[in-house]
Amino acid sequence: MFDNYVLSDNSLKNVKKDGKTVGYEMRTRITYYRGIPLSMVHDILVEVDDQPVPRENIRFSLDGELYFTLDEMATVTFYKWEYGQEGIIFVEQEGGLSEGEHKVKLTQVTRVAYIPVPFSGTQTKTMAV
């Protein structure tokens, strides 16, 4: 349904900090039709080349400056993820991903007041680093 918004095309890349590759990131739009405070993002799951990424290595950012862990996000009500806005999913991993293609699966789960169970969107894409 909204799954086509989960992974932005060609958005997978390694992230360098002070000359060292500290991880990788991808971009995602909300799989809902309106913006919500970050606390309503119930969960984010990442799999790369069929391997699940540990939850504590995942960070989320709206602006590329401020990053939240998933546990922190549960209380973030001040910042809103706007509809259509590309959020950044950063995965902390020394050395990042090897050059070439990787199969990435991203799942977003949000809470919606009028749907009794959290609502998820998933997309798998092969993207090159």
Binding site: R34, S39, M40, A74, T77, R111, A113
Partner: peptide, 10 residues
Amino acid sequence: IYINTVLYKN
């Protein structure tokens, strides 16, 4: 409009 009754997880 929407009232975010599920603003918090807990």
